[in-house]
Computed example of a mutant assay.
Amino acid sequence: MARNDSTGSEARIPVRIPHRDIELDGDLTVPAHPRGLVVFAHGSGSGRHSPRNQHVAADLVAAGFATLLMDLLTQAEEAVDVETREHRFDIPLLAARVVSAIDWAQGVPDVAELPVIAFGASTGAAAALVAAAKRPDRVAGVVSRGGRPDLAGDALADVRAPVLLIVGGNDLVVIQLNEDATHELTAPFDIRIVPGATHLFEEPGALDQVIDLVLEALDRWLPAHA
């Protein structure tokens, strides 16, 4: 995997991820000696260019983790979804594409052997959880940021990896939905509330608190010496 060695920073490499009869656009970034691969599943009406996911991904790369940001919908599907919102809540469709990304990564030499963290936001969190249930030998942890884990349904009971649920303190409905979902989880889980934050964590410093919580969890799940 090419890197921008002249500046000392890692290059973001555009990739195409095959899924059945389509290809999904993604951006893969691999630092030197990565500890794991974080696969992002974006939320409703979002994509790989989401400034929030890019912010989180940049800090994870700086901490030594490879990241894969991807569009779960094609451009044509995205155009339809903007009008109808029919795809953003299609969890089986989104989850199948996260699984394809995890499988694809096994063929990329720089990340093939890395443990995978599935990181979902909003409805993408449900897709990440379903993917973790379908690939228990590959997924070492699941992170949900302002997510809807309740939409993962029966798959919650099949998740084996530890789960971190991060919710804004002012996102009261989503807090309740997350708490309800934990009753179906059999894997270890932790709910962390970011005080004063709303659903998108747009408040000053809120997203940085999310990143701190994620890095704390990854240090537990993927010890540096491993």
Rank of each mutant, 00 (worst) to 15 (best):
L151W: 05
P31G: 05
G45D: 09
V210Q: 04
V39H: 01
A2M: 15
G36T: 01
A197S: 09
T123E: 00
G8W: 09
G47H: 07
V108D: 10
L165D: 06
V167W: 03
D208G: 14
S44R: 10
A57T: 06
R97Q: 08
T198Q: 12
S122I: 04
V174K: 05
P204M: 09
R220A: 12
I117H: 06
V194H: 07
H199N: 04
G47R: 03
K134W: 14
L24F: 02
N53D: 04
S144E: 03
G124V: 05
R3Q: 15
A140V: 05
Q176S: 14
V194T: 08
I193T: 12
A101H: 11
A217Q: 12
P195E: 02
D158H: 15
V56E: 03
S6T: 13
E216I: 14
V159Y: 13
D154E: 15
D81I: 01
G45L: 03
I166E: 00
P18W: 08
D180Y: 12
I211L: 12
H42S: 05
I102W: 01
V61L: 12
W221H: 04
T123K: 01
V111G: 04
V143M: 01
A112T: 09
P31F: 07
L68R: 03
T74D: 01
M70Y: 03
L69P: 00
G169A: 02
D180W: 11
V98H: 10
P188C: 11
E179G: 09
A126F: 09
P223I: 01
I13D: 11
R145N: 09
D21L: 10
D90T: 12
H87R: 13
T198A: 08
H183Q: 15
L37A: 00
T67W: 05
P34L: 04
L129N: 13
V38I: 05
S44P: 06
T67A: 02
N178D: 11
D150G: 05
G196K: 10
A131D: 13
P31L: 07
D27K: 06
H55Q: 10
E78P: 08
G64H: 02
V99Y: 03
T84H: 13
A121S: 04
I175D: 07
L177M: 13
A206K: 10
M1W: 12
D154R: 15
P162N: 11
A226R: 07
M70A: 01
E86I: 09
T182D: 07
S50V: 02
F89A: 14
L165W: 04
A181H: 06
H42A: 02
G141N: 05
L218M: 11
D5A: 15
G45Q: 04
G107W: 07
L164G: 01
V80G: 12
H87Q: 14
P92S: 13
W104L: 12
G64K: 03
F40E: 00
D171A: 09
S100Q: 07
G147A: 07
L222N: 00
